[in-house]
Write a protein that binds this DNA or RNA. Sequence first.
DNA 1: TGCTAAGCGAGACGGTACGTCCCGTCTTAAT
DNA 2: ATTAAGACGGGACGTACCGTCTCGCTTAGCA
Lengths: 228, 228, 228, 228
Amino acid sequence: MASRRSSTTRGAGGRPRDPHIDEAVIAATLEVLAETGYPGLTLEEVARRAGTSRPAIYRRWAGRARLALAAIASRLDVPAPPDTGCTLCDLAEGFNVFLAAYRTIRPDVLSSLYAECAPDPELQARYLETVIEPSRRAVGETLDRAVARGDLRPDTDREQLLDVFGSLVHYRALFGRRHMSDTEAEKVVETLLHGVAVDYPALLARSEALEQAHPEASTAHHAHPSAS
Amino acid sequence: MASRRSSTTRGAGGRPRDPHIDEAVIAATLEVLAETGYPGLTLEEVARRAGTSRPAIYRRWAGRARLALAAIASRLDVPAPPDTGCTLCDLAEGFNVFLAAYRTIRPDVLSSLYAECAPDPELQARYLETVIEPSRRAVGETLDRAVARGDLRPDTDREQLLDVFGSLVHYRALFGRRHMSDTEAEKVVETLLHGVAVDYPALLARSEALEQAHPEASTAHHAHPSAS
Amino acid sequence: MASRRSSTTRGAGGRPRDPHIDEAVIAATLEVLAETGYPGLTLEEVARRAGTSRPAIYRRWAGRARLALAAIASRLDVPAPPDTGCTLCDLAEGFNVFLAAYRTIRPDVLSSLYAECAPDPELQARYLETVIEPSRRAVGETLDRAVARGDLRPDTDREQLLDVFGSLVHYRALFGRRHMSDTEAEKVVETLLHGVAVDYPALLARSEALEQAHPEASTAHHAHPSAS
Amino acid sequence: MASRRSSTTRGAGGRPRDPHIDEAVIAATLEVLAETGYPGLTLEEVARRAGTSRPAIYRRWAGRARLALAAIASRLDVPAPPDTGCTLCDLAEGFNVFLAAYRTIRPDVLSSLYAECAPDPELQARYLETVIEPSRRAVGETLDRAVARGDLRPDTDREQLLDVFGSLVHYRALFGRRHMSDTEAEKVVETLLHGVAVDYPALLARSEALEQAHPEASTAHHAHPSAS
DNA sequence: TGCTAAGCGAGACGGTACGTCCCGTCTTAAT
DNA sequence: ATTAAGACGGGACGTACCGTCTCGCTTAGCA
C-alpha cells in the first residue's frame, strides 16, 4: 500500500522520506497487531517500536486504519485462481482462497479494522480492495471457467455466489463458531451445486400459485399470512 | 439486560440503586450509538447525557461493550419464525428475520461491537445470543418445518444453511455492497434450493475420477463424500 | 504557592491529590530550571523527572509560568528588614535584600519567567508578589524607620526609592554588566542620600528661570531647543 | 542589521539573494511582534506572512533572536543627547531618551527578547548595543557636559548614574507599575541631584562610628569608603 | 425510634494516547 | 555556487478519555 505522498504527488522537491522508517513502521505495526490485536494498535507504541515519532507516521498514513491496511496489504499476496478442470474441487478450493487472508492476519484484527473502516466510504473501499477483492477476482475467474465449461448454468449469478463464499468465510472466521474446513467447504459446494430441495419445480409452482391468490403479498417487506 | 448487582447479589442492605439512572443511561447509549457509532460511544459522553457519572455506569455494566449490548438488547425483539407453508416464501422471509437486527441497529455499530466482543469468550457468547441466535432459532424452526414437510432433503445441513443466511445478511449489511432486497433474497433461496450445476451427478463423477487418477493432486485434508 | 484546586475550592468531594506528586514536580522543576534555565523548562521533562504525567501537572498549575512561580516561591523566603540603626548600613543592606531572590534563582530564569508573565495581568501580579514585593516590603520598613528617625527627609518618595533599589538590582543581575557588590551598593546609597549636584538650589533656580521663559517646554514629550 | 552572508562572505559566485525577501521578512517580523509579542514570533508564521520559506530566513539570520534584533534595530533610531544648558531639564529629558526604545517596541517584547539573548554573550552584546547603548551614550554625553559645566560633582559615577536611568526606565516599562512620566522623571532627577538625607555628613559619621565599635557586626565583604 | 453500616451518587485523580504545531535540517531544482 | 522552497524527522504541546479512588449522603435493617 502506497504511502500518502507518493500516491498523490510525483516525487517533487523536498527532503525524501527515509525508507527505513517506512519499513520499521510497517514491521512494528504487524508486530503489535499480532501481539495485541487491532484495539491495541497504538500509534504511540508503533512509533516506539519503530524507533521513530508519531508525526513521522502521520506523514505517511492518515490514521490508524490506513496504517493497518498498509501493513496488512504488505503481507497479503494475490491469490491464484484454482483451475484443475474439476469444478467441484476448484470451488472447494475457492474457500481456501478466501480463507488465506484470515490465516495470514488474525481474524479479529480484520474484523476490528473493518469496523473502523466502515463509516468512511473511501476507507471501506480500500479495505475491500485490499482484503476481499483479490479473492473475489480469483474465484470469479474460476466460476467463469466453470460456466464456460458448461458445468454451471449460464444464468448463474456470479456476484451472488462470490458473496456466499466471502460471507461464509468471513462469518465463520469471525464468529469462530466452526473453522471452515475443507470437508465443510465441499459440503457447502455440494449444496450450492445441487441445491437442498427435494423437488424444486414443485416448490416453485406452489409459490407461484400462492402469489396469484394473494398478489399483494409479493411487495417488499411482506409478511405471509399464516393460513395456506 | 440485567444490571450487575441484581444478577449477582440479592438485594442486601444499603442504599438502593436509582432506577432512573439505568433508563437514562440506556437511552443515552442508544442516542450516542445512533449519532456517532460505536467508536464515538464514550462512557464520558453517555454519563454526560444521562446526567450522571461514569462510576454509576461502571457499577451497572462492566465496560463499554456490555453497556452497548444491554442497550441493543433492549431494542431488539425476538423474531417470529416465518410459517406460510410456502417454503420458498418462508426462506426468503428468513433473510428479513436476520436483517431485522441490522435495520434496528446501525450495521457498523454491530460490526464494531462484535469486534470488541470477540476476544472475550463470555462477551462473544453474549453478543451472539443477543444479536444472532434469535434469528437462527426462528429460521431454524422454519427449516425444520420445511424438512418435515418433505420440501427439503432430510440430510440438509441445518446449521450450514443458517450460516449462509446469517453470513450473507451480515456481509451485505456490513460491506454495503448491495443491500439485501426481497428480490435478491428470493434469488439466493432459489440457488440454495435448486443449485447452480447443470448436471451435478456428472460433476461429482468427474471429481471422483480425477481423485482416483491423481490422489495426491487433490487438495490436502479433504475427503469426497461417496454418496450422491 | 498553592495549587489550583486548594486555592479555589474547599476540599470538596473527589479523590484527593497525591502530595508526593506535588513535591516531586516542584523538585523536578527547580532541578530543570537550575540545569537548563527557563526556556529548557519543559512540562514533558518535568513530568519525566517527577515520575508522573503531564496532565497531573496541568491539574495543579495552569501552565509553565505558574509552575515555575510555584517552584520559585517554595524556595524564596521572606526577607527580614535591615534594622541596625545605621541608615547608611541599612540601606546598603537593602540591596542585599533585593539581591537575595537573584542569588537563590538564576537571574536569567527570573528574567525569562517575567517575560512570560508580563502579558497576563494576573500572572504578572503573581510574579511581582512572589519575587519582588517581599523585598519591597522589607526595605520599605527600613525606609520608614529612617524617616521616622529623622535621617531621611519626610517628603521622601518611598516608592520611588524602592523602585531605584529594585530596578538597579534587577538591571545588574540581568544585564550582568557588573554584579552588585556591597561596595557599589554603598556608593549608590551615598548618591541617593547625598545627591550628585554641586549646588542643587542653583540648578533648581536656573531650571525655573528657563521654564518661565519657555513655558510650553514643560509639556510631556517635549524636546528642548538647542539654544540656551 | 546586515544579513549573514553579506557580512561574512564577499559576494562570490552563485545565485544572488532576493532582496525583497529581506524586507518582507523584517516587515513580517515587526508585524508579528506587534500583534502577538515575542513568544508568538514563530519563524513559521513570519515565513508565511513574508511569502517565503523558513530556510530563507535561517540563511539570513541565525535564529529567532537575531531576526527580532534585526527587525527592532531597523526601527530604532539613534537618540540625540539632550543639551539645553539646564542640567535639571536635560537629565529629566534623559529618561525620555531611554524610554524611546520602549515606546517604539512593546516592552514585553524587549523583555522576552532579552531573556532569550542573555545566555549567549554575543547575542547579549548585540542586544545591549542595539537597544540600550545608544541611549547610554546620548545621556552619557549629557552627564559629561553637566560635569564639565560644574553642575555635577567631578567624582560623579557616570556609569552608576546611567544604570539608574536605564534600570528605572526598564523596570517601570516592564513591571508597568507606573509609567515613567515627565513629572516623575523630574522627581527622580531631583532625588539624584539633591539626595534624600537630611544631614548626610552626620549619617556618614554615625556609620563610621558604628563600624569602629563593632567591626564584625557590619555586613560581610563590604568596605566603607573613607572619603566623604 | 435511633444507630449503624452498606452501598450509592458524584467529583476528581493518575495516566495513556491523541492529533497538531513548530523547530531545525536536508534535498532538489532553478538561477 | 548558491539560492528558494518543499518536506522531513522529531520534541513538546494541551486535551479527551479511561479506569479507579475517595468522599459525603442515603437508606435499610437491627437494637
